[in-house]
Every structure is written in C-alpha cells, then in structure tokens.
C-alpha cells in the first residue's frame, strides 16, 4: 500500500488501467531478515477469478494479505478502483475489509461464541446494518449455500465442510467486489473440497465478485480463469491460452 522506495508512483485514478478492479506493482515485503515478497505484481478484473499458486513459503499468502489491505507492503503500490490503498487511512482500509473485500481462510476465522447465523451477519453488523436486515441477508446466504440448518449452531458444532460453507457465506454476505480466499479447501476431503469450490465459483459468478484464490492445489486452481505463480516472492503470470 505504501508507495515508498524506488517504485514508480501509482497512476492517477483516471489513467489507463483499463477495466482493472485491483492492480498492484512492485510489491515488496520483508519480515525481519526474511524477504517474503520481491517485485510482485498483480491485476484482476471485475468478476474474474485468479488463482495464486506457489510452494509453501513462496510468498503467496503475503501477497494476498497485501492485496487485501491486511498488511502494508514495504514498497510498491496497490490501486483498488483507482484508489491508492497506501494513501488511505487505517479506518478507510478497515471499511474496505468489511465491505468491498471479503475473506475466506483455510480454517478458523469464525467467532466460536457466536452462532453460525450471527457469524454470517457479522460483516453487515460491523458496517452498521440493523440486526433484522443483517440476519435476513445472512439467512439467505446460508440457504444459498445449503447450510441454513446450522444457523443456530456454534461453529464448533458443525462439520468441516459446513464450517467452510458458513465461512463462505460470511465472506460473501456483504456482496464484496473481491473475495480473497486463502487455501479455502485446504482442510477438507475431496468431496467437500469440490462442493465448496463449486459453490464458491457459482456464488462469485452470480454476483460478479472477483476472486483471488491462493492455493497450492492444481485441482483447486483449475476452477480459476487463470493462474499467477509466486516463486521466491516474485509473480509470474501464466496466460490462459499459454502452451498447447
């Protein structure tokens, strides 16, 4: 998000980024002596699904965290709808994370003390939506993912597949423009993996939500429109028509 360092500054909002929803250039991020990202770039269009692949420790999760405004890169810039994330205040970024951006992680993330319905409604409640409306929309979302039966259960009382579908319901309830999914099926068996991925793709397509899908599983990445590979903190785009 920061434009510090030697990277070129982000282009102005009205400059040519085409129809790109989110664009990032020259991202670098280190944690102490460890370099996680080094000159990483990324683009995603509205409604597009891009898989970010790479081995463990390649920097793909750090890239997702930077793109989603969870952490700030040391160098480089990120534009969302032409707005520079680095120039936003923390509260503006926090607003994005509760509205325009949705998040789905491999495991955990649901608040154990809240019911699945309350968990799903949480992003709306944090955005100031009234309880009745938030609950109604959350229930609708749970129904669409076939987990409305969990509404009054706590996350610890549902199966792994149901847990991820509730997490997906929560990630999509505020109808984000971008869903950031980090190994969303990593803890699931093959059957549940497929169920979650099909629901995710279907829901994202219907609401024209772009999806940044971090995975090391080719089978999961194959649901995406294209892949970006991260190796040693650098991105490499694999064009959809490449080879063969």
């Amino acid at each position: 998000m920061s434009a510090a360092g030697t990277e070129a500054p982000p282009p102005a909002a009205d400059e040519a980024l085409g129809g790109t929803l989110l664009a990032a250039r020259g991202l670098a991020k280190s944690f102490g002596p460890t370099t996680a990202l080094e000159r990483a770039s990324f683009d995603i269009d509205p409604g597009e699904m891009v898989a970010v692949m790479g081995a463990s420790g390649s920097g793909k999760t750090t890239l997702l965290h930077c793109l989603g405004g969870i952490i700030a890169p040391d160098r480089g810039w990120i534009l969302y709808e032409g707005r520079d994330l680095g120039a936003m205040s923390e509260s503006e970024r926090s607003g994005l994370r509760c509205g325009d951006f949705g998040f789905l992680f491999q495991s955990g993330g649901l608040v154990p003390e809240l019911s699945c319905l309350e968990n799903t409604a949480l992003p709306l409640r944090l955005n100031g939506v009234g309880r009745r409306t938030a609950d109604a929309r959350a229930r609708e979302r749970l129904e669409s993912l076939d987990v409305d039966g969990t509404a009054h259960q706590r996350p610890g009382e549902v199966s792994g597949g149901e847990y991820q579908r509730v997490s997906l319901a929560r990630a999509l309830v505020a109808e984000p423009a971008i869903l950031f999914a980090d190994e969303p099926t990593g803890a699931l068996d093959s059957l549940n993996e497929e169920k979650v991925m099909r629901l995710l793709v279907d829901a994202a397509r219907r609401s024209n939500t772009a999806v940044v899908l971090v995975t090391h599983e080719a089978r999961v990445a194959a649901y995406a429109d294209r892949e970006v590979t991260v190796r040693d903190g650098r991105t490499r785009d694999l064009a959809p028509g490449a080879a063969g």
Binding site: V201, A218, R219, A222, A239
Partner: peptide, 19 residues
Amino acid sequence: EVQRSAHLKSMRELTRRKT
C-alpha cells in the same frame, strides 16, 4: 514451466467440462 502451463490449461478445461 511450459509443460506446467499446458497441464493447468488442460485441467481448467476438464474442470469446466465436469461442472
């Protein structure tokens, strides 16, 4: 890398077919 790209392309097509 060229082979990997061809494999991923094939996997995308198969995934589309199966869905």
